[in-house]
Design a protein around this nucleic acid. Structure first.
Lengths: 195, 195
DNA sequence: AGCGTATGCCAACACGTGTTGGCCAACAAG
DNA sequence: CTTGTTGGCCAACACGTGTTGGCATACGCT
């Protein structure tokens, strides 16, 4: 035992926490920039200025490192408390903010396109974070999965073309333009009557 | 010289053409299913029932194999000859057809999400095949790249979630539903006045 | 038939990967 | 100070990869 009963909240503050965080930060960057295979443990360790074996000791194996480094928290707003006809724009704006702030979503998107495990992680984010929020805004409860999925196609398509494929015209779009163009689309997918 | 002046049209018909095609077919499947890194030359050769060294002899290296195997031809219809308010649905339907018929688009999408070279190939498809077709249907010529790019976000987002991430609700959608939902979106991106 | 070339396989190389175990120094506790 | 523990590095292993050269064989042509 360490003596200090630190198992209550934040865990024990170890002397190596700075190293651990350096590893996680480097891992996030590399996974986002290179995808799972090309983000080698050696490269991540070099970025973090430590030995590759430390990564293994702290996170078990590469999969464990990815799991520890990439934890997607969309923190979606409560759509029920918004004006009914604003949810589309609000969702697009929120996604843009989250995506620009950290690399984890891009990392997950890249890895999801590569490996089956990554795809399942992505499915989990959709199921646990996007689905519940849309539940209170769709007309027919039975259509919730379909409508949320449609919204996902548009939002993920934006992220793919803008941050991964880097299509030049998509990169050139400003935040306001994106919200103005995609907002009504999401709004329609979520709230409009079935076509 | 081979004697037969076959440099005119289709090239010489070699005895090994069946092998070459077997390699290409296997490569397309593997690239589409596994992405660039995980699609190993050994696995492709095994699928084609030949030795890995044959792949090298016929296509130089792995990059050459990918270039030979994945040549995206969207064969987009002439939008100018369609009723003005049908282009959205027509485009979505056409994309669905092409995507279901061969693996090359999925392969390119997977690889585009992994490597820089793949992303550039994808940019080329957008520039050389989607842009020209949309040119004759947008109101303002200056907005053509933007509007085509917006359409690309939606179409590629559909492909990503349906064929790569395999989100269950997207998989469950029928062809008609997809056309009915996404058609108006594409229509608006291409033809509606700027928001 | 005889010859040249294309076709195919085998074995091996060089390299980078994830991963492991042992060793040394710095720290904390007695 | 002494001792146990933690943090860190080094060297190495086992493995799979792309890639290469050499050798046998089957085909097409004269």
């Amino acid at each position: 035992m360490t003596g200090t009963d630190a198992s209550s909240t934040g865990g024990p503050r170890r002397r190596s926490d700075t190293t651990r965080n350096a590893i996680l930060a480097a891992a996030r960057e590399r996974f986002a920039a290179d995808g799972y295979e090309r983000a080698t443990i050696r490269a991540i360790a070099k970025d973090a200025n430590i030995d590759p074996s430390m990564v293994m000791r702290y996170y078990g194996n590469k999969e464990g490192l990815f799991a520890a480094a990439v934890t997607v928290e969309l923190k979606l707003p409560d759509l029920a408390s918004l004006p009914r006809d604003e949810v589309g724009r609000a969702l697009v704006a929120h996604f843009l903010d989250v995506w620009e702030q950290n690399d984890e979503l891009t990392a997950l998107l890249r890895v999801g396109a590569t490996s089956q495990a990554g795809a399942e992680r992505m499915q989990g984010v959709f199921r646990d974070q996007l689905l519940p929020v849309t539940r209170h805004v769709c007309p027919d409860p039975e259509q919730v999965p379909t409508r949320a999925a449609l919204a996902a196609t548009q939002v993920l398509g934006l992220a793919l073309t803008r941050y991964v494929l880097q299509l030049q015209p998509v990169r050139a779009l400003g935040r306001g333009e994106i919200v103005a163009w995609l907002g009504p689309t999401i709004q329609r997918y979520l709230t409009a009557p079935s076509p």
